[in-house]
Amino acid sequence: MSHYSDLISQLYWQLPVNLTALAQTITDPNVLGQIQKFWSHFIQTGQVWALLIGLVIGYMIRNLTSYG
Score class of each variant (00 low, 15 high):
Thr25Gly: 06
Gln44Glu: 14
Ile35Arg: 06
Phe42Ile: 08
Gln34Ile: 03
Thr27Leu: 06
His41Ala: 00
Val56Tyr: 06
Thr27Ser: 08
Lys37Val: 02
Ala21Asp: 06
Tyr4Pro: 03
Gln47Val: 01
Gln47Cys: 12
Met1Asn: 14
Thr27Asp: 05
Trp49Phe: 11
Ser40Asp: 14
Leu55Met: 15
Tyr4Trp: 04
Ile8Pro: 00
Leu11Ile: 10
His3Asp: 04
Leu32Gly: 09
Val17Tyr: 07
Thr27Lys: 10
Met1Val: 13
Tyr12Asp: 09
Ile57Asp: 04
Ala50Phe: 06
Leu51Gly: 07
Leu32Lys: 02
Thr20His: 09
Ile53Trp: 12
Gln10Ile: 01
Val48Gly: 11
Leu19Phe: 12
Gln44Cys: 07
Ile35Leu: 13
Gly46Trp: 11
Ser9Trp: 01
Val48Lys: 13
Tyr12Leu: 02
Leu52Gln: 14
Met1Cys: 09
Ile61Lys: 00
Asn18Ile: 00
Phe42Tyr: 15
Tyr59Asn: 01
Gly58Trp: 11
Met60Lys: 06
Ser2Thr: 10
Ser66Pro: 01
Ile57Ser: 11
Trp49Ser: 08
Gln44Asp: 15
Ala23Phe: 02
Thr45Lys: 11
Thr20Asp: 06
Met60Cys: 03
Asp6Thr: 05
Leu22Gly: 13
Trp39Glu: 14
Val48Asn: 15
Gln36Gly: 05
Gly46Phe: 09
Ile57Met: 10
Gln36Thr: 05
Gln36Ile: 07
Gly33Ala: 12
Trp13Ile: 04
Ile57Cys: 05
Thr27Ala: 09
Trp13Arg: 11
Tyr59Arg: 00
Thr20Asn: 05
Asp6Lys: 00
Ser2Val: 08
Ala23His: 12
His41Tyr: 08
Met60Ile: 02
Ala23Met: 05
Gly46His: 07
Tyr59Gly: 08
Pro29Phe: 02
Trp13Cys: 09
Gln44Thr: 10
Val17Gly: 04
Asp28Trp: 03
Ser2Asn: 10
Lys37Gly: 07
Gln44Asn: 15
Leu19Pro: 04
Val48Ile: 15
Leu51Val: 05
Gln14Asp: 11
Ile35Pro: 03
Gly68Asp: 12
Leu32Pro: 01
Ser5Cys: 04
Pro29Asn: 00
Val48Met: 06
Thr45Tyr: 13
Gln36Tyr: 00
Phe38Trp: 14
Thr25Gln: 14
Trp39Met: 14
Ala50Lys: 11
Leu22His: 15
Val31Trp: 10
Ser9Tyr: 04
Pro16Ile: 01
Asp28Gly: 08
Val17Asn: 12
Leu19Ile: 08
